[in-house]
Amino acid sequence: MILVVDMNWKQDSLAFGEFVSPIVSVVQTLEECVVKHFLEIDTSKLGCYSKIVLSGTPLKDHATLKQVEKFDWVKSCGTPILGICAGMQTISLVYGEPLLNCLQVGMAEITTLKENPIFQGEFKAYTLHNYSVSPNKTFETLAESAKCIQAIKHKQKDIYGVLFHPEVRNQEILKKFIQLKQ
């Protein structure tokens, strides 16, 4: 069972169909999934999930970035996590790694910098973000665009972040994450 976390500013928001449903559509082709809003995560049940995907949000939605304490479970749960866009930004903040301003909207050329199990080489991806991260001690940089870091992985754990949206273009990246062997 896969957990998809709705990162939008409120439950049942107008952005659900845009940022959560497309992830669910891809994930459901491989495995059953359940969706929970980030404010309704029951941390005692996280062990029930084989993977966790954190959704993106509209550009103007910074709710999770202001409530990072709600994501302390990211550090302790042990389940592989993929954070998409706001998901990646939130994961970085959970580990105390600051964000930097980087506005990017539209298709961007992504270059893989480090071999990894979910993507490779150069590809075009859909971006929609206000922030990225700097190289830091917690995460290794997996990919970048001409403007900023586009993908990271925790140096010890199976915690991934992609700033681009694999549910829009490059759905196979999301599928590869779901199929990762633990």
């Binding site: 107008l14 909207v105 539209g106 829009v168």
Partner: peptide, 22 residues
């Protein structure tokens, strides 16, 4: 992409409720 950029410039939200739907 183009509408998102305009909305961002004008500091308004942009919603696409049918995005990627079957």
């Amino acid at each position: 992409t183009r509408i998102q950029r305009i909305c961002n410039r004008l500091n308004v939200w942009c919603f696409n409720p049918l995005w990627k739907h079957d």
